[in-house]
């Protein structure tokens, strides 16, 4: 399975990518939403996108809206991974088309639990 990690923090991209790689994901990274769309436009379409909210150039909500406006990407599961924890923000993200919401700070176990909830644990991680 493939995952795209979109965050303007290189450290946070490495943390999230590390968790996903340990679970068996093939991972690509992007520093903001536009870069994430460029990766997908280039033909590398992930099964899962983990997206920060506050980023320069294109924020996470704009990325979610852009993805949902393209029927070719409707299979993509999107999880917001962000320190934005206001109820209103969560509702906006889910209304725009995100499937789940992970609030920072989180542990690797909590991250894995969210993926399990989404049915997005790779087969090798379930066994």
């Amino acid at each position: 399975m493939r995952a795209l990690v979109i965050d303007d923090s290189r450290v946070m991209r490495r943390i999230v990518s590390g968790i996903l790689e340990d679970l068996g994901y093939e991972v690509q990274q992007a520093g903001h939403g536009r870069e994430g769309l460029d990766v997908m436009d280039g033909g590398w379409v992930p099964d899962l996108a983990c997206v920060d909210w506050n980023m320069p150039v294109m924020d996470g909500l704009q990325f979610v809206s852009a993805v949902r406006s393209n029927p070719a990407w409707r299979q993509l599961t999107i999880m917001m991974v962000t320190s934005e924890s206001e109820h209103g923000q969560i509702v906006r993200a889910l209304a725009a088309g995100a499937h789940e919401y992970m609030i920072k700070p989180f542990t690797a176990d909590a991250f894995r639990d969210k993926l399990a909830l989404l049915g997005m644990l790779p087969q090798e991680a379930v066994l």
Partner: peptide
């Protein structure tokens, strides 16, 4: 970047 991310997480939870 690491120190910035900690400020981001603490700031986000102060905002909450």
């Amino acid at each position: 970047d690491g120190l910035g991310e900690l400020a981001n997480v603490v700031g986000g939870n102060v905002k909450a």
